[in-house]
Design a protein around this nucleic acid. Sequence first.
DNA 1: TTAATAGTGTCTTTTAGACAGTATATA
DNA 2: TATATACTGTCTAAAAGACACTATTAA
Lengths: 235, 235
Amino acid sequence: MTESNNNPLASVDIQRPIVTVDVVLVTLAGEELRLVLQERDREPEKGRPALIGGYVWPQADVDVTAAALRILKAKACLDGLFLEQLMSFSGPDRDPRGWSVSVAYLALVPQEALESAARSGAAPFHLVDPQSPPALPFDHNRIVAAAMARLRAKSAWSTLPAFLLPSSFSLPELKAIYEKVLGTPLNDSAFRRKILEMRLVEEIEARSVPTADRKRPAQLYRLARPTLTAFDRTV
Amino acid sequence: MTESNNNPLASVDIQRPIVTVDVVLVTLAGEELRLVLQERDREPEKGRPALIGGYVWPQADVDVTAAALRILKAKACLDGLFLEQLMSFSGPDRDPRGWSVSVAYLALVPQEALESAARSGAAPFHLVDPQSPPALPFDHNRIVAAAMARLRAKSAWSTLPAFLLPSSFSLPELKAIYEKVLGTPLNDSAFRRKILEMRLVEEIEARSVPTADRKRPAQLYRLARPTLTAFDRTV
DNA sequence: TTAATAGTGTCTTTTAGACAGTATATA
DNA sequence: TATATACTGTCTAAAAGACACTATTAA
């Protein structure tokens, strides 16, 4: 577990950092963006709501992303959602167990998938405002801030927000989620023009069901490509 | 060095991964972008040109970025350059020493600073084409590809390419480096309009020195803000 | 029919590109 | 003066925004 090396502390062997994964899980609850937390199931900070995370298991995981997927499935009963590596956070003090590296991920889950996970026995979810979350353990507030910045920025030039919606959605719904994530109103005809002309979505043979206050049913669409698609820019 | 846990392999304690840093160092040599490699100074792959990297030292480094800065200084005599964390690469096979996580960084260095580092005793640099580098050890080709994609994408909407230039530069030089990084010609008057109207640069009291084929001296500028500045988008 | 959202058409504004033309240096 | 690059001005094209107007549903 150690490497001999030209260490600044001379004869001391190199200690390996703790390596963990933390997932900033974001969903849409009703009309609002929500950050999904779970109570920690062990020390330190046992019982406190925190990002969904855990150790990387070299014996079990083929890479850190596999660890994130494994942890999401084990702790939140979630599978097949949008997952993107953000960056790593590290240091001697961010975790009381010692010098640690946490590889942070952004994950998006549609409301229905989260509700289904809750019903299938996941530990309870705490939904909080991701723009002003409560004080979280470790450096989780910093990780959330970085994740939300990435979500906001990337949403301006990619199909990212669509991964907060079910697989079929109307253009008014899509526009609403873009506005929610970007925090700014969008021009309706320009939005439709862009989304349709770039062929980011394709019509499906269905319309939304009208409700009391959503009178006219809307044409439903699905993403033309099931993966994240960039427009305007390329990253 | 181990954690007890609800490990899938039951009674086996968790091994900690090796944690390293790899820096994709890019410079401008003459008119061309160049990836800067150094020969590895120890096994494995001793003597082979590779990314500049090394172990994270929990005893010495306050975080992984500090490790990257320490390693750049120790191995390449480089200091004060643009450094941005890319993402982590991980897995059981990428390093023969065992399951490892490498936190990759993109670093940009002006040609003059690299030449000065070479003169001040850094181990020799190997400069190669970053778009089609030779076969590199470990998963370094993959890391280079990710770094170049980030450089290209981010250059379209930020002052990133300016960090490949000395602190003062002319607009023709700035335009040339954008074109080199983006791989596409830019409209001259539109480029000047954008850069000047957004006040990304400010005039300094100097002009470039004319040479045989650069007849008219150009006004010199410096970045209005010494840090990376985004335009159009925000990330 | 009314009300409320869905969707379209078109004019205006903004921004980027094309490109001619002027300015300033060397030789 | 010839020439090569630096720089400016202006027309055109493309994209985004504003907004009126039509369409379709429930009640």
